[in-house]
Design a protein around this nucleic acid. Structure first.
Length: 204
DNA sequence: GTGACGATAATCT
DNA sequence: GATTATCGTCACA
């Protein structure tokens, strides 16, 4: 007996950010692309960002941009950075407490050709086949592959444009690893990056 | 295989 | 005016 895949409910996200980040490994992220096709895959890398005590977090200071991290859980926080890239976060914690998880990498499972086409030459091999380890192996890559931009900032994560689901392939505890976060200057000491060890689709 | 570097614009001081 | 939760390309080994 198979259950229809159902989106993770807001209560999933209304917990300590670190718990959500760890629990997101192995879950599926799906996106209805502008053409209507469903694309996405399995989360293999995620980072937790906290509140006023975390200098790496946008919520270190409460500003117009970071206000969304203080809001209700279960919605998307998408920001633009380096003049070029979007990054996808999921807002966590009860309303009033800041926290979000940055989705950093997916193992592509569906819509590979469409995602690879959006990513360009770097995601296609010599024979024109999608390179699965190059499609969603980074926070900027996966938003490009899935057509995620500022228009989805604040969108609910229960669909229909974007949603997360239980996942068909859970991650065994022995394959989960924790490391410092990537690409930050302050807050490097904190172990808040969660990965599926040795997965070929991790970011660099 | 590694490391340096430029692109490019929103956000904040 | 400085900074940035990134990526692809280019040297060089």
């Amino acid at each position: 007996m198979s259950r229809a895949p159902r989106p993770l409910p807001p209560s999933f996200y209304q917990r300590p950010t670190e718990d959500v980040a760890r629990d997101l490994l192995g879950r599926d992220l799906w996106r209805r692309l502008p053409g209507g096709e469903i694309a996405g895959g399995r989360i293999v890398e995620a980072e937790a960002y906290f509140g006023p005590d975390d200098p790496a977090s946008h919520a270190y200071r409460r500003t117009l941009r970071s206000e969304i991290m203080y809001g209700p859980a279960g919605i998307a926080y998408i920001y633009f950075t380096y003049g070029m890239h979007y990054c996808l976060n999921v807002v966590c914690e009860p309303e009033g407490t800041a926290g979000a998880v940055l989705i950093r990498a997916l193992e592509p499972r569906r819509g590979l050709a469409a995602m690879a086409a959006r990513r360009g030459a770097a995601a296609i091999d010599g024979r024109g086949r999608p390179r699965s380890e190059a499609i969603c192996s980074g926070p900027g890559k996966l938003t490009q592959a899935l057509a995620i931009d500022h228009c989805l900032n604040g969108a609910p994560l229960q669909g229909p444009e974007i949603w997360l689901a239980t996942g068909e392939e859970p991650v065994p505890d022995v394959l989960m690893d924790v490391t410092p976060r990537i690409g930050i200057r302050r807050g490097r000491d904190r172990l808040a990056r969660f990965i599926v060890r040795d997965n070929p689709c991790l970011s660099r």
